[in-house]
């Protein structure tokens, strides 16, 4: 059976470091050819809003968009 990784993200993008951790794990998993999912719940859905203007921290929506272009599957 093919390996998959599913990450559960339930915190908002600029209050916690979880977004960065999720981005880095997902990136590494995708680079290994592993099917990778993010399930966003509660405030985690804010990671995927358009028009974010965060600075000084990793940019959530740009980061996830770039990984979605590489095959990351996201469910809200």
């Amino acid at each position: 059976m093919a390996k998959t990784i599913t990450l559960f993200l339930n915190t908002s993008p600029y209050s916690h470091e979880n977004t960065y951790t999720a981005l880095k794990i997902a990136e590494a998993a995708l680079d290994k050819g592993i099917e990778t999912h993010v399930v966003a719940s509660a405030d985690g859905v804010y990671n995927f809003l358009n028009g974010q203007k965060g600075s000084g921290l990793p940019h959530a929506s740009k980061g996830f968009q770039s990984l979605m272009d590489k095959g990351l599957k996201v469910d809200l």
Binding site: K3, I5, F8, K24, I25, E27, A28, A29, D31, K32, I34
Partner: peptide, 18 residues
């Protein structure tokens, strides 16, 4: 460990609690 190694640990474990 780096993220590459962590992904191996995640896939090798029977259960991950995070």
């Amino acid at each position: 460990v780096d993220y590459n190694r962590l992904v191996d640990m995640l896939t090798e474990a029977d259960k991950v609690i995070g």
